[in-house]
């Protein structure tokens, strides 16, 4: 379906992302690494236009321009101290985009492609968690709400019930891929994301952003599986794996465990360590 030259171009873009992550791990090469990553992303978008020849070209280009202006203006205007919440917000919109793409894919998935349906359900649920969780981290860091852990009686029960509900809806979606079940799953995901981040204290929020970042990476990988797009699969998996390790490294650097950060307040312990 996709021409060979485009597949090779995607491979080059994927290598750019790997080199970018490698270079970002060392102070000397970090800035170059970021530019290599950006170059890979631009290459990927150009190849996509050339290989898939999408309809509705004009509206898509207009949407691209709007997004570019929004991204550049947002990241140029922000002060240095506000960068973590901006990263959270960017991560959130990425997760939201992945969830929307998965919802739209539902119509295309044929009934025999069980694995693809599982991947779609996963993307919708986790993408929605990443979106709402990131929005809550943003409001915490921006001090639009209290930075202290927020819990209420019954939160653990509600949380576990929502997760079970999310799993049940996912199973339903896999056996019967209907868009409205997907929308319902999306809403449950949004609720889980809020409940996941509310009990986390302000100082621990960057670690949660990193975790949600890894979540979004995995949703992108699942989307790549459904669309049969190797670039999305590789890029998403890279971010998912690197993000998971990075979350652990960040927690270790603060002398905290990821489990304690997420569930410390719910269990009644202190989240300040």
């Amino acid at each position: 379906m996709i021409p060979t030259w485009a597949q090779i171009g995607y491979l080059v873009a994927a290598v750019c992302f790997i080199v970018a992550l490698k270079a970002l791990s060392s102070p000397r090469s970090a800035r170059t690494g970021n530019l290599i990553g950006a170059a890979g992303a631009v290459l990927a978008v150009i190849i996509t236009f050339a290989a898939y020849k999408p309809n509705h070209l004009a509206p898509i280009l207009i949407a691209l321009v709007i997004g570019t202006v929004g991204g550049v203006v947002g990241s140029r205007r922000v002060q240095m101290t506000q960068m973590p919440q901006l990263v959270a917000l960017f991560n959130g919109v990425g997760g939201g985009a992945a969830a929307l793409v998965a919802l739209l894919e539902l119509g295309e998935v044929s009934s025999d492609a069980t694995v693809a349906a599982i991947a779609s359900a996963f993307t919708i649920l986790v993408g929605a968690i990443s979106f709402s969780g990131s929005v809550v981290t943003f409001t915490k860091l921006q001090e639009l709400m209290t930075t202290r852990p927020v819990t209420f009686p019954g939160l653990p029960v509600l949380f576990i019930a929502s997760i079970l509900g999310g799993v049940a809806l996912s199973v339903w979606l896999v056996s019967d891929p209907r868009v409205w079940v997907g929308v319902l799953l999306c809403l449950v995901g949004l609720a889980i994301g809020v409940m996941l981040v509310l009990p986390v204290g302000g100082a621990d929020v960057p670690i949660v952003i990193s975790l949600l970042n890894a979540f979004t990476g995995l949703t992108v990988a699942a989307s790549g599986y459904v669309l049969g797009n190797t670039l999305l699969l590789v890029a998403g998996t890279l971010v998912g794996a690197a993000g998971t390790l990075l979350t652990k490294l960040m927690a270790d650097a603060m002398g905290r465990s990821v489990f304690n950060i997420l569930f410390g307040a719910v269990r009644g312990g202190s989240t300040l360590g």
Binding site: F17, A20, L21, L24, S25, P27, A30, G33, N34, G37, G40, A41, A44, V45, T48, F49, Y52, K53, P54, N55, H56, L57, P59, I60, M83, P84, V87, F90, N91, G94, A97, A98, L100, V101, L104, E105, E108, P206, S210, N213, T216, G217, T219, V220, S223, G224, L227, N229, L231, L232, A235, G236, L238, V239, A242, G243, L246, L249, M250, A253
Partner: peptide
């Protein structure tokens, strides 16, 4: 470099844009 690396990885998963273009362009 923990925070810049997280931010860079975050930018990379923005490549879901490719998926968004494919789905929008095919409908």
């Amino acid at each position: 470099l923990h925070t810049p690396l997280m931010s860079g990885a975050n930018a990379i998963h923005g490549v879901i844009l490719v998926g968004a273009i494919i789905v929008t362009g095919a409908t």
